[in-house]
Design a protein around this nucleic acid. Structure first.
Lengths: 137, 137
DNA sequence: CTGTATCCTTAGGGATACTG
DNA sequence: CAGTATCCCTAAGGATACAG
């Protein structure tokens, strides 16, 4: 678990995670990409969380440079980009699901649809697969 | 999964999570409490992450007011406090483990002990139970 | 020693103007 | 319309003095 002497992981995974996506906006953007099918700049802006355009730009750039988000030109409408999760980003799903499960337990206001939570607790792998298939690529 | 109309969870669990522990320092403190057996003020300070005393104080207070951390007087040495995870805090373990698993996959520098990762992937419930028993109360 | 309060700086981020 | 650059300000947080 931890080194007996230093009581530390040599390269700490939690610190690494924080350095890669460890702020409010990154989590919310990953949420949007993972669970809400959002993939365009304006969709993130209009998500209603109040992120401003410049902050969104820097977060997307950060996530991209960390290999979590992929940015590619929209073949339909060449003036814009499509933002998607990379494999590395998609693999954050277990963490996000664990967080959702936790929030559902402890936040009286959180209202994740019942069948979502049921499936999450019953067969997380299956749920994960289902979500995966809906994530834009 | 999401409401068909709003495409949103009514009370978003991710936003809730972020409001409860959604910053670098909170994650690191929770890590210390959960995996490193730390429970005293000075142990967090000396963790070597460079948190300053005032920031630690506010984070501990925030986590306490969010019901994630418990603060009680040390019966041995009455001039100090013991900080522990509440049940609500302990239940963040699946999320933390998922994050550790992810970091181990994607950070070349992260070095979680092999048997830890093996057990995490093989029998997470058992690992969780084992860690749980080592968490100070 | 175990924390808390104060001070002060800086970086994060909101508002908005701007460019292709 | 899609995204970037600039401006400015607030609030997070580092250093450190202070209190019990």
């Amino acid at each position: 678990m931890v080194d007996k002497k230093t009581k530390a992981w040599s390269g700490c995974p939690v610190r690494f995670g924080m350095s890669q996506f460890g702020d409010k906006w990154s989590f919310l953007i990953i949420r949007d990409l993972m669970f809400k099918g959002r993939k365009y700049y304006h969709e993130f802006i209009e998500a209603g969380e109040g992120i401003s355009t410049n902050v969104l730009a820097t977060r997307l750039a950060d996530l991209e440079s960390n290999g979590i988000v992929n940015k590619s030109r929209d073949p339909i409408k060449g003036s814009r980009f499509i933002y998607t999760l990379t494999d590395k980003g998609i693999e954050l799903m277990p963490m996000m699901l664990a967080m959702i499960d936790w929030a559902e337990k402890f936040d009286p206001v959180t209202e994740v649809p019942e069948d979502f939570i049921n499936e999450l607790r019953d067969d997380p792998k299956k749920l994960q697969q289902e979500i995966m298939e809906k994530i834009p690529r």
